[in-house]
Simulated scan of single mutants.
Amino acid sequence: MNQIQAVTVERDEGYWTHPDLPEWDEGTPRAECIAWAAANGGDFVVIWFEADAPENLIERYFDDGDIDISDWNPVCDKVGSFLLSIHDTEDGPVALFFAPNEQEGK
């Protein structure tokens, strides 16, 4: 299996999914997702829009119903991490990053 790699991100209204990310849905067991990340040599980092975005963007999304989140630019502070997805959930937008495990000797 080829490990997942970073690719160019081209967001549509702020949303995007890595082309090599499996097509998971609400019914996908968490253990399956974690196993996929481990097989690719890393872990997931989740950043929630409501906890990360500026207040004006949060108000625009939740209060005004404007789903365009292009102005939200979440950043993962884990070394080597890259974006896997920015998608909507029942609780609002979320950014999913992949963070490679640190390799010994580096």
Rank of each mutant, 00 (worst) to 15 (best):
V79I: 15
T28H: 04
L96P: 00
V79N: 12
S85D: 14
L84F: 09
G65I: 08
E50K: 15
A39W: 06
F98E: 07
Q3Y: 07
F97H: 06
F62N: 07
G92S: 01
R11M: 11
T8H: 14
G105D: 04
D71T: 03
R30D: 10
G105V: 08
L96W: 10
I86G: 01
A37C: 06
G27C: 06
R11S: 13
A35P: 01
E10K: 14
Y61M: 05
Q3H: 11
S85C: 12
G92A: 03
I86V: 14
D43H: 11
W36L: 02
P19Q: 05
E23S: 09
M1A: 13
D25M: 02
G80N: 10
S70H: 00
D91S: 13
Q103N: 09
I69L: 12
P54K: 09
D52G: 04
F98Y: 03
L57W: 07
A38C: 04
V9E: 06
Y15G: 07
D52Y: 03
V79T: 14
F44C: 10
D43A: 12
S70R: 00
D43F: 02
E10W: 01
V46N: 13
I47A: 11
C76G: 13
D71C: 04
I34H: 07
P22E: 07
D71I: 04
L83T: 09
G105R: 10
D77H: 15
H18W: 11
F97M: 09
I58R: 07
E32Y: 03
E32F: 00
P54Y: 00
V75I: 15
P19I: 09
K78T: 13
G42I: 02
N40C: 01
N40L: 06
G14H: 02
A53L: 02
T8R: 13
W48M: 09
R60I: 03
W16T: 09
D63R: 08
R60K: 08
A99P: 09
A95E: 02
I34V: 15
N73T: 15
D12A: 13
M1H: 12
W16P: 04
E55K: 09
I34Y: 10
R11H: 11
P74W: 07
C33T: 11
E102R: 10
A53M: 01
Q103Y: 06
N40A: 02
F49H: 05
L57A: 01
W72V: 04
F97V: 05
D71L: 12
C33D: 01
L84Q: 08
D20M: 13
V9I: 14
D25V: 04
Q5G: 00
E90D: 14
K106Q: 14
E90T: 08
P74G: 12
G80E: 08
A39E: 15
E23W: 03
D43S: 12
D52C: 02
R11L: 12
S81W: 04
G27M: 03
L57G: 00
L96K: 08
Q3F: 07
Q3K: 13
F44P: 05
L84S: 07
E23R: 11
D68N: 15
T28M: 05
E104R: 11
A53I: 01
V75D: 12
